[in-house]
């Protein structure tokens, strides 16, 4: 594992911690898309079906469990926690995520490495992760103002994807084999989705104003 991959995993972890911190400290999930969080929970649950069958390293196993547990905890808080659920912006969270799930599943049935349950679900999770941030971006755009923690949450998620791409470039030059084309292509698409957000985040940082996404 190289430093970029590790840094990518850490920024991913930090983004989740920021979200948990926001929910825990403010007892509010305002500005957070439940649909995106549910998609991430689905992503982790379907990708890590190999948790008990394929052992890579202790690090990988622990991270997989952390990602599954934290994503389920966030969804639980937003749906069931008596205080947190009241702050959920249901009317702003309008992205039609069910069609995206369906499209990703059909794509996974058509484009996969092997036609087995584990491989189809693995491909499904990769496709779904690429677009899972969309409901969140739509919600931020519709609500206009973005609070600091929510902005940082999305920023760290984007950084995680960017670092994964640098990790692939690094691996390309230092290892002769490493990954799967499905993950690479989807990863590029996923990172592209953040480009717009990064741009406006940079603008708000440069001008020292509150982050706002144009409608």
């Amino acid at each position: 594992m190289n430093i970029f991959r590790f840094a990518g995993d850490m920024t991913h972890l930090i983004s989740i911690l920021i979200l948990l911190l926001k929910i825990y400290a403010t007892k509010s999930c305002a500005g957070i898309s439940l649909k995106t969080q549910e998609l991430y929970a689905l992503v982790f649950l379907t990708r890590y079906l190999d948790l008990f069958t394929d052992y890579v390293s202790l690090y990988n196993t622990v991270m997989k469990i952390v990602f599954i547990a934290s994503s389920l905890a966030i969804v639980w808080c937003m749906r069931r926690h008596p205080l947190v659920r009241r702050s959920y912006d249901k009317d702003l969270d309008t992205f039609r995520h069910q069609y995206v799930v369906l499209a990703c599943f059909v794509l996974a049935l058509l484009l996969n490495e092997k036609f087995t349950i584990q491989e189809v679900f693995w491909a499904f999770s990769i496709y779904l992760e690429a677009v899972a941030i969309l409901p969140q971006l739509v919600l931020l755009q519709r609500s206009g103002n973005v609070d600091n923690l929510t902005g940082q949450y999305v920023l760290f998620l984007g950084a995680y994807r960017g670092l994964y791409i640098i990790n692939w470039i690094y691996r390309y030059f230092t290892e002769d084999h490493f990954t799967r084309w499905i993950a690479c292509v989807s990863g590029l698409v996923q990172t592209g989705l953040y480009a717009d957000f990064f741009y406006y985040y940079y603008l708000s940082w440069k001008t020292n104003t509150k982050l706002k996404l144009p409608a």
Binding site: M63, K64, N167, H177, W181, C184
Partner: peptide
């Protein structure tokens, strides 16, 4: 082969 099906990333 570059894309050898390694699944060691998260």
């Amino acid at each position: 082969k570059l894309f050898d099906g390694t699944k060691d990333e998260l």
